[in-house]
Design a protein around this nucleic acid. Structure first.
Lengths: 213, 213
DNA sequence: TATCTCGGAATGAACATTCATTCCCCAACG
DNA sequence: CGTTGGGGAATGAATGTTCATTCCGAGATA
């Protein structure tokens, strides 16, 4: 019953700085980060169950055991990635959201921010899409998902109230937009080249025409 | 080296009718069908690697070994499902396609047929979407996919030539439409209730407004 | 030297697949 | 009409493999 190293708190954060004097967190973060990156890629390529933990270790350039110093289990790892990406995404997309702006502007902003983020992190986007609602996501991840969904729903509902969006189940409108967005990402990930900004604008225009009242 | 039963040819078809006099194929088909159905559901719920073969057997109400009388391997099983569904879907959606009709009509027809099929077989639709481009799909399945994609691309390109659809990469337009469609399906599978026809029409209208020139 | 992180072989559980056996159907026979 | 035997379908325990997780010795740090 001797307490094992606590994996939810990466070694360095728990102890005193074990790194170069200058408050340079990287020595610590590096491995954790490498693991997260490798796992993200592999989960996207092969799925959660299709990915073996030692594979993740190989790609991250660490030993298999090391993963368990940073994460309690494979499941904890996937949840960590999910939450980290979702949070990051949410912050970027919703930062300073112009609550009072016309819906047209709001939509353009959301779409373009999403496009930017997804262009820079296409794998991360696909990851979130893929793992959405999977049974290995824990309550905390689900709650996060719910919360973000709620934010978007509120925006949609209020825009509908102002008659700037078509009436209809908010779920439906959001499903269409998010689905289309994923479709766009896929259409470029599959070709393995990123969309140019003209294409993104075209897509934005198309979706707006779909949504507007 | 004694030849094992050939799994690609279900037992009954190879031998004399082993069933009730009346040319009733069901005794044979039943198990194969039950396996396909169970596997489809489980693959949708848990993914390919997340589903254990004996689980499939349980849900199908057969012994684990029986699956291997009908399919060479788990991989062969998933490919069989994929091809069967894709083919079925293609036939239904593209039957008597009105090549000369206005694009508006063509789109309405395609959308509504897809909606009907997906409403009747939501799991099948999600299955196809999920397994699309996975590495356990074999060349034959991929080729089928390509062929169907080609058909749709041709329709889009020719409609663009007639200036009835927006100009832009056909991949992009198709990605948006299919993505949005999946989004709609998801929005109702997740709520676990099927969309009513008004919602389907609304979605169709929205997407058409996105596409039209 | 004392402490702490790492790597990767070792471990036990779970899995896909196999195969010896059972079960079922029916035709032949008494 | 009841019994019996053959043949093939079905089964599920057994098999070898793969995997998530653990463990321990080796280095690094101080």
């Amino acid at each position: 019953m001797s307490p094992p190293p606590n994996p939810s708190q990466p070694p360095a954060r728990a102890s005193q700085p074990n790194l170069a004097k200058r408050g340079d967190k990287r020595v610590v973060t590096d491995k954790r980060e490498a693991i997260l990156d490798a796992a993200l890629e592999l989960f996207v390529e092969r799925g959660f169950f299709g990915t073996a933990v030692p594979e993740i270790a190989d790609r991250a350039g660490v030993g298999a055991g090391t993963i368990y110093r940073y994460f309690e289990s494979k499941e904890a790892l996937v949840n960590a990635i999910y939450r980290e990406q979702k949070t990051h995404w949410g912050k970027l997309v919703l930062a300073d959201f112009p609550v009072a702006a016309p819906t047209r502007e709001q939509f353009r902003l959301l779409w373009m921010r999403m496009a930017q983020w997804a262009t820079e992190n296409p794998k991360a986007f696909i990851f979130m899409e893929l793992h959405h609602h999977q049974r290995y996501l824990d309550d905390q991840s689900r709650a996060l998902e719910e919360r973000m969904l709620g934010l978007f729903t509120a925006v949609v509902v209020s825009a509908q109230a102002r008659r700037e969006l078509k009436a209809g189940p908010p779920q439906l409108l959001m499903g269409i937009v998010m689905g289309a967005f994923v479709g766009v990402i896929r259409s470029c990930v599959e070709i393995d080249q990123s969309l140019d900004s003209a294409d993104w604008k075209l897509a934005e225009q198309m979706l707006w025409e779909a949504l507007r009242a």
